[in-house]
Design a protein around this nucleic acid. Structure first.
Lengths: 168, 168
DNA sequence: GAGTTGACGTTATAATATAACACCCGATTT
DNA sequence: AAATCGGGTGTTATATTATAACGTCAACTC
């Protein structure tokens, strides 16, 4: 339902990875989880999720708004923010706090909270479970007596692909 | 130079810690570092830093703007944002990305990047060096081949004082 | 004393996000 | 079938956060 995806010059990362697989896996998982949970992945929500998954870059809300307008000419900021709220609640996307932007979550349904590696050069965001980090964090919370509700662990720098290209 | 500090009902944390000492240490360190570095801790920058240190809560930029107006009637958004940019560059404050707010840094001059524990109940922000976490993070970056520029590690939940009060 | 630099004043506007209320539609109840 | 209820969306307005652009001034430099 979005045939010209591969035509977009910025949609695909420069590497050789099969991005269509990323997209279909993410959308399939989302559809499945929403059915299981009895929540509605409405057309708008589905479109927003698809738009977010056009790349591994974090996307701004108003950029999504511009991009959804051809499909939903009535779209307004609230349209996007409501869809984003839903997708976040369901753990289908991450809000990248340090960018005020949004990126797809590859591990919806299991361990949503991950380390985000954000490349300043190509702007892609890599999720990593980072279990050793999470364990060390848990110990830190225990020591501090702190009850965790949510975590944002966002690292800015240069990713391995861009380092290889000498771009840092 | 800000005598009515202890009169403000929201300025001091509910605990019995000596906040005047926090403030004087922070301002003293800031003054010293700026001299050493040959940068100017101008009156405006000093006032903004003082206002931020009125509590351990993260403060919004426009809240700072309101609060500095009695002292700097010409203050505009740029006044505050420029001072904040300076203080962040010098490692004297943290920007709390997940709140769009700012909090004093207790460890200016050494190890600025810390774990921030943000209490949803009292809104205080606790900095922790969390060396085990930082080590685990370094290993993760090495594995990923990622070159780090900056880190934002922000945890939301209930702090030990509020847990003790049964507020979660 | 002309040029440069850094800090600040000032105006305008961009970018991000939410509030509030109306409407529709499908499901449930009566 | 009418009533009602809830979730999702449409729509308007506005709040909040942040930056751009340009001018002035004072200190320092050559």
């Amino acid at each position: 339902m979005n045939t010209p995806v591969e035509a977009s010059p910025t949609a695909l990362p420069p590497s050789e990875h099969d991005h269509q697989k990323c997209v279909s896996t993410a959308l399939g998982t989302a559809e499945h989880l929403c059915v299981v949970r009895g929540v509605q992945l409405t057309p708008i929500r589905h479109q927003v999720l698809e738009l977010i998954w056009e790349s591994h870059k974090a996307v701004k809300a108003y950029e999504l708004l511009d991009r959804i307008k051809p499909l939903q000419s009535a779209a307004k900021p609230a349209t996007i923010y409501r869809a984003l709220d839903f997708l976040i609640e369901q753990g289908l996307i991450h809000r990248v706090e340090s960018l005020n932007a949004f990126v797809g979550c590859s591990s919806s349904g299991h361990q949503h909270e991950q380390l985000l590696l954000i490349c300043k050069h190509c702007h892609e965001v890599e999720e990593r479970p980072a279990t050793a980090v999470m364990q060390a964090l848990s110990q830190e919370f225990d020591q501090a007596g702190f009850i965790v509700h949510s975590k944002a662990i966002e690292i800015h720098g240069i990713c391995v692909k861009c380092v290889a290209l000498g771009d840092d």
